[in-house]
Amino acid sequence: MIDFIPLEFYQYYYINTALVIVIFTMLHSWVLELDDYKNILYIKTIGYLLLILILLYIGLRPVSGRYFADMRTYSNTFEYYANGGDLKTDKDVFFQLITKFCAEIMTVNAYFLMCAVLYIVPMYRVSKAFFKEYWFYSFLMFLVSFSFWSYGVNGIRNGLATSMFLWAISFYEKKPLMIAFMILSMLFHKTLLLPILAFSLTFLHNKSKTYLIFWIAAIPLSIALGSFWESLFASLGFADDRLSGYLTNESAGRSGFRYDFLFYSSFPVIAGWFYIFKKDFQDKLYHHIFNTYLITNAFWILVIRANFSNRFAYLSWFLMGLIIIYPLLKEQFHKHQHIVIGQILVAYFSFTYLMFTIYYAR
């Protein structure tokens, strides 16, 4: 357990270490070509070092409900099972089974390390599977995403579920494995039914223009009709009683239309539009992923005023970094493409850094 770092500085060290790595990577892009041997050596070395360090840093953090929110709840459940408690069957039984099993054979610190492995390693796996020796850029995009920290230390079940989804699409060429891991993701958290259904829909219709129109239309529809969509989806009992509660519960107040988050959500939309429609990027898998994002993010836009709407947003946000960087690691689009990759890393991370250091620091 890493207990020599004051808890109040845990997130501070993460965000500023990420800043140093992003800036250093951008500087590399200015002086070396993407396929230069020195650059390949750098991204391989820093990539594996970063993978190990982030696993240990998140996985061995002390148990705290004050600084890591729901971590205390997970810890209490673990201790309940360690003391011989009966299996809880009221929600996400598969995750409860895993926790109960772990409580019988390991300590709570080992349990959270295992959760970190299951959360982070799939990000490495999908990056390595898609981009080979350039996997570091994709992996770094995952690690500097706005939601990465929150779902690694707080909304752990959600984070594990979306990582299982990422692992699933890494088996795109092996459909039985892909389906198995998608089912596994839903067993971790039932809300993954939405991206799974969206991804499945793209196999029936994979035209990005259709889904882009749907995404754009969701904005005025949400502004004009407001709570209508929240009541509609809640009445349908969408996948999870807890999410229905978030849609209709007024006790915590309404969050209002989050234009800042809509702006953030537009990053992969703009990237996908540019490479698909302007650069004619014809990659079937990329279209599947991009269209899945458009569908799930449009759903969030419709219920954007709901309490805890970030829980809906994360059902699309976990794909953001992958969508933005994917084309640049697959084809040559720009004369100085390595510089473009460095600039995109900085621009993408800037939102995360500013939100943590300015918005949430108030």
Score class of each variant (00 low, 15 high):
Tyr359Asp: 08
Ala234Ser: 15
Ile43Glu: 11
Trp229Leu: 05
Ile5Cys: 07
Asp241Tyr: 05
Glu33Lys: 15
Ile46Gln: 13
Phe78Thr: 06
Ile324Leu: 04
Asn109Thr: 05
Thr191Gly: 05
Ser29His: 07
Ile43Gly: 05
Ser185Lys: 02
Phe312Glu: 08
Tyr359His: 12
Ile54Pro: 06
Leu197Arg: 00
Phe349Cys: 02
Phe24Gly: 07
Asp86Met: 03
Thr45Ala: 02
Ile169Phe: 06
Ile46Tyr: 04
Phe146Thr: 06
Phe181Ser: 07
Arg311Val: 11
Ser265Glu: 14
Leu345Ala: 03
Arg125Met: 06
Lys209Val: 11
Tyr172Cys: 00
Ile52Ala: 15
His205Met: 03
Leu27Val: 15
Phe199Arg: 00
Thr210Gln: 02
Pro6Glu: 10
Phe131Met: 03
Gly152Met: 11
Lys335Thr: 15
Lys175Met: 01
Asn307Val: 09
Asn291Asp: 00
Leu243Val: 03
Phe112Ala: 12
Leu187Asn: 08
Leu221Ser: 10
Ile339Gly: 02
Met123Ser: 12
Phe9His: 14
Phe112Asn: 12
Leu51Gly: 13
Leu354Trp: 08
Tyr326Pro: 06
Ala18Arg: 01
Met178Tyr: 01
Phe68Leu: 01
Tyr134Phe: 12
Phe142Cys: 00
Phe214Cys: 09
Leu315Glu: 14
Tyr326Met: 05
Thr17His: 01
Phe214Met: 12
Val117Gly: 11
Gly84Thr: 06
Ala198Asp: 07
Ala271Trp: 09
Ala116Leu: 10
Ser350Met: 14
Tyr12Phe: 14
Pro220Asp: 08
Ala69Glu: 13
Tyr48Cys: 01
Asn206Asp: 14
Leu328His: 02
Val121His: 04
Phe199Asp: 06
Ser208His: 00
Cys115Gly: 04
Phe261Gln: 13
Ala82Asn: 11
Ile295His: 03
Phe94Val: 07
Leu247Pro: 09
Ile216Gly: 08
Leu294Ala: 00
Leu322His: 13
Gly321Glu: 07
Asn39Phe: 10
Thr73Trp: 06
Leu315Met: 12
Tyr119Val: 03
Ile54Ser: 15
Ile120Trp: 08
Phe351Ile: 14
Arg125Pro: 05
Asp92Trp: 05
Tyr286Asn: 01
Asn109Glu: 15
Tyr42Gln: 10
Lys44Ser: 13
Ile196Thr: 14
Leu187Phe: 10
Arg362Val: 07
Lys335Asp: 08
Leu53Ile: 14
Leu51His: 10
Leu221Arg: 10
Lys128Thr: 05
Ser235Phe: 00
Ser138Ile: 06
Asp70Glu: 09
Glu250Asp: 13
Ser185Tyr: 08
Gly321Asn: 06
Phe318Cys: 03
Ser222Asn: 05
Thr357Ile: 11
Tyr293Gln: 04
Ala110Asp: 13
Val144Trp: 00
Tyr119Thr: 10
Tyr172His: 03
His336Cys: 00
His28Pro: 05
Ile270Thr: 11
Tyr74Gly: 01
